[in-house]
Each structure stands twice: as C-alpha cells, then as structure tokens.
Design a protein around this nucleic acid. Structure first.
Length: 278
DNA sequence: CTGGTCTCCTGATCGC
DNA sequence: TGCGATCAGGAGACCA
C-alpha cells in the first residue's frame, strides 16, 4: 500500500500524539509478524517504554523510545508492506474494523495504537539499540524525499537495467514504489525502459528533481488513497487526483492526448506516454 | 556481484 | 448470488 508520501503522512499524523507517551501494555496477537534476531519480549515491543520520536527512511518507520530498564534508547521498526496500517485510537474511540489487527499498544493517556496488516507483507522489527537500527537502515539508498541531485546520481550508478527497475530498488533510493516511479518518470519525460547507463548527466539531474518534487507534492496532499490507505487518524490522502499516468493506461496523455501505454516492466504494471517520454 | 523470476497473503473486482 | 481468474501501493529468497 504505502510508498514514501503515505508513510511520511502516517509519521506526521502520529508523532504529535505519541511523543511523551508511556506504553502501558502491548498485545501481540501474531508472533510471526515480528522479525528479530532474538525472541521478542514485551519490553522489546516497547512495553513500559516512553516514546521520544518516530523516524522514517524511505518506506520504513521506527518508533524510538526510552527503555524502562536501562534508560537507553531502543527502537521498534515498522514495515507496512502492501496493506499495513498504523492507526491511533483516541481514548474510548472504537475501531471501525478490528480484523487483521496483529499488535496493539495502550498508551498512558488511554489512547491506543494499532498495527493492522491484512496481507501480512509488513511486520515489526526489534532494535535493542539505535546502532542496530542504523545498521539495518544502512542497506537502504538515500531517502528519496530529501536526497540531492548528487546523492541520486551517485546511488544510481551505471547499471544496464531499466530505470524503472532501479527506482523500485530500495537499496538504490529509498521510498519510491510503483505509483511514484511512474509519476516521476512522466514528469522527467523519460521512458521507463531506458537503461540506467544510457541516461545523460542532464537527464539524471532532471529525474532527481522530478522525484523530489513529486514526493513533496504528494506529502503535502497527504499521500495517495487508491483503496484503503489512511493516515494514523484514519484520514485519506488526496494525491490520487493528481496522478498523471498511474492507473490511467489507455487514457489520453495529459500533455499530448495520445493514449497512454500500459505494460509489465520489472514485474509491475507500468504506464507511460510513448510520445512524451523517451 | 547483477538482474530477472517466484512467492508470500488477503481482498476487491470482473466476467460468466 | 456464486465462483474462478486476475490484480493490487512491497520486497526477500532464489537462480542463472
């Protein structure tokens, strides 16, 4: 479900409410959503901890907290996968849909935080120190929202694969998924199947700027709600109304009015304009 | 190492 | 209304 703008919208909508909260209790309904080197104990899942902030890199989130036993910072990584949600329930508020809620935290102000993920492609990850979180996030490329043209140019390298495939690779840049890859390539007027090594320095710079601009606009619009995405307060995004190509195969190109092409590329449905993008 | 393919899982939608 | 096929915002495992 969520790409960078959706994950950032969740982060921003949640952070003001849970900073300073102490976790009174944790309910883990499915153990198999937690991946960690050790058996996850309740304390690792933030029981008793006081939350200090929520960080994001690409599509990954981490709730940072102070361990009650050691006083040191610990982190709980949250990966939303395709269908994951983090939802905050105000005190006494009821869920509209409590199915597929795999973990639940009760906070000191009586609010609750729910991790819901029907398809279970997402999950939680325990980090007993911030160094372990940094190591884990180290496998990601630069964050696509805040990267510079130079960051992007370096990370992209000169491989032979299609630019669309490279944009989806989180170790190249972190945060772009299928929607924003197609939207960014349209804005940069680049065909998705162009080999990375065939892109000129100018094209690479144009693409870097297009990615950052598209993501910034999407964050401002609260992300894209295609089906069921919502931020932590249950609010939908509005950027889907601004999509130029994603989900519009066969429709007229917004620029030249010719029919948009749709095909499989890098195992994902890809939509682009053969006339405007080359 | 690189890049392509398969697979995990549930639910919505579409055509019959 | 029911039923099977297809598709979906992701990414780790596996293979040549």
């Amino acid at each position: 479900m969520p790409e960078l703008p959706e994950v950032e919208s969740i982060r921003r909508s949640l952070e003001p409410f849970i900073i300073g909260q102490t976790v009174l209790s944790v309910l883990l309904r499915r153990r198999d959503i937690v991946s960690s080197p050790h058996t996850a104990r309740k304390a690792d899942l933030l029981a008793g901890a006081t939350i200090t902030r929520i960080d994001r890199r690409g599509k990954r989130l981490a709730i940072i907290a102070t361990s009650p036993s050691t006083g040191h910072p610990i982190a709980l990584g949250v990966q939303l996968g395709m269908s994951g949600q983090l939802l905050r329930l105000a005190p006494r508020e009821r869920t509209t849909d409590s199915t597929h809620v795999h973990a639940l935290w009760r906070m000191s102000d009586q609010s609750r935080l729910l991790f819901r993920d029907p398809r279970r492609f997402g999950g939680l990850r325990v980090f007993t120190t911030l160094d372990l979180l940094t190591d884990n996030w180290g496998s990601l490329g630069p964050d696509a929202l805040t990267m510079t043209d130079q960051d992007f140019n370096t990370a992209l390298g000169h491989s032979s694969r299609a630019i669309k495939a490279a944009l989806l690779d989180q170790s190249v840049i972190a945060g772009v998924g299928n929607i924003y890859a197609d939207e960014s390539l349209f804005r940069a007027k680049l065909a998705p199947q162009r080999p990375v090594a065939a892109l000129s320095p100018q094209e690479r710079a144009t693409l870097a700027s297009a990615i950052v601009a598209v993501l910034q606009e999407a964050v401002l619009a609260g992300g894209s709600t295609l089906r069921d995405y919502a931020n932590a307060n249950g609010e939908s995004g509005r950027f889907q109304f601004a999509h130029n190509v994603y989900g519009r195969g066969g429709d007229p190109c917004p620029t030249c009015q010719r029919a948009l092409r749709s095909a499989q590329l890098a195992q994902r449905t890809t939509v682009w304009c053969e006339h405007c993008q080359e």
